[in-house]
């Protein structure tokens, strides 16, 4: 992100760059668990897409293809609501790398 000073800001806090929040990667909040997509179990019901609060389900050519970890916060709704016989989304443990300085 380039450094913006007040001189570059639009008057009246008007934002003309519609949808630019996609630059905020909410996936960085995820801690401890993440969903894993198992394609062969998927019945393409789209419930995960429907119920994902962070728009993190990848849909390509009319099919659910996986998870966008840039935005997934790991809430787990997709896994709970997945209706396929064998779950096609399961929550797995995720190791997180802590930023330098917070090692104990």
């Amino acid at each position: 992100m380039s450094k913006e000073t007040w001189k570059e800001l639009t008057i009246g806090t008007i934002n003309l760059d519609a949808g630019n929040s996609v630059k905020n990667l909410t996936g960085t909040w995820r801690s401890g668990k993440k969903p894993e997509f198992i394609e062969e179990n998927c019945i393409q019901c789209f419930f995960c897409w429907l119920y994902c609060p962070h728009f993190a389900i990848l849909v390509k050519d009319g099919e659910v293809k996986g998870i966008n970890y840039d935005y997934c916060t790991g809430c787990g709704i997709c896994s709970v609501e997945c209706p396929s016989k064998e779950k096609s989304i399961v929550m797995v443990k995720e190791e997180i790398e802590l930023a330098g300085g917070s090692k104990k």
Partner: peptide, 26 residues
């Protein structure tokens, strides 16, 4: 059909700061 709805363009997009598991975006 959900499949058709999923292919529509999002008018509210990713990168918002709502809590994990929030009901509002749905």
């Amino acid at each position: 059909k959900l499949k058709d709805l999923a292919s529509m363009e999002d008018r509210l997009v990713a990168g918002h700061g709502l809590c994990l598991g929030c009901g509002i975006p749905l």
